[in-house]
């Protein structure tokens, strides 16, 4: 555990909590892509099945359980409790176009052809693109609430911090996992455009509106 990994995890946790808090506090999930949240719930479920087979540490298990529970709680808020506020007309990204290629790629490019390992690989690939429905929704409406942009910033920063963690681990531990690194780079690159808008607008106290 190094500082990049820890801040990455905390940033990830913060993102998830910001989203839950935003929906709960405003009693509304408008501007939030339910489809991205379905993908994230799929990611955590596929990746953390090793909770049942392999114990790493209390920290590891607790975080996994929080991520899974928060993902399903978010889905419940969007699709059940605050269903009336869900932006379904704008949330139209076809997630099967992400799910199918990730599943296929996981079957072909993995560390080992076992069920858990293929599911882990699938979750890594899927996570890298899971934000696309959300970014699509923001681009379609042309704006995002400030709290939603904080959520996106924290969520995007998490994988960027993991990239620094992997550079650190490569130099100091000789560790590297090519699948995670390549997917992590893809994931971070997808946020770059958003990071630029966040820094140039939201930090300066303006709303995140996309340039026309």
């Amino acid at each position: 555990m190094n500082i990049f990994r820890l801040t990455g995890d905390l940033s990830h946790l913060l993102a998830i909590l910001i989203l839950l808090w935003k929906i709960w506090k405003t009693r509304s999930c408008s501007g939030i892509s339910g489809r991205s949240q379905i993908l994230f719930a799929t990611v955590y479920t596929a990746r953390y099945l090793d909770l049942f087979t392999n114990f790493v540490s209390v920290y590891n298990s607790v975080m996994k359980i929080i991520f899974i529970a928060a993902a399903f709680a978010t889905l419940y808020l969007i699709y059940v409790k605050f269903k009336a506020t869900y932006d379904r007309n704008h949330d139209t990204f076809r997630i099967e176009f992400l799910l199918a290629p990730c599943a296929l790629l996981a079957l072909i490019l993995n560390h080992e052809f076992t069920i858990l390992e293929v599911l882990w690989t699938f979750s890594i690939y899927l996570e890298s693109v899971a934000i696309l429905p959300q970014l699509f929704l923001v681009s379609k409406t042309g704006e995002a609430e400030t709290i939603t942009s904080h959520y996106l910033f924290a969520l995007g920063s998490y994988r960027a911090l993991y990239l620094l963690n992997w550079i650190y681990r490569y130099y100091f531990e000789g560790f590297f996992d090519l699948i995670a690194i390549v997917a992590g780079i893809v994931q971070t690159v997808l946020y770059c455009d958003f990071f630029y808008l966040y820094i140039t607008r939201v930090i300066k106290g303006r709303a995140l509106k996309l340039p026309a």
């Binding site: 995890d9 090793d50 790493v56 991520f67 560390h111 858990l116 390992e117 882990w120 995670a180």
Partner: peptide, 10 residues
């Protein structure tokens, strides 16, 4: 080795 039994990252 980065197989499932060695994965400590989240």
């Amino acid at each position: 080795q980065t197989l499932i039994e060695n994965k400590d990252e989240l």
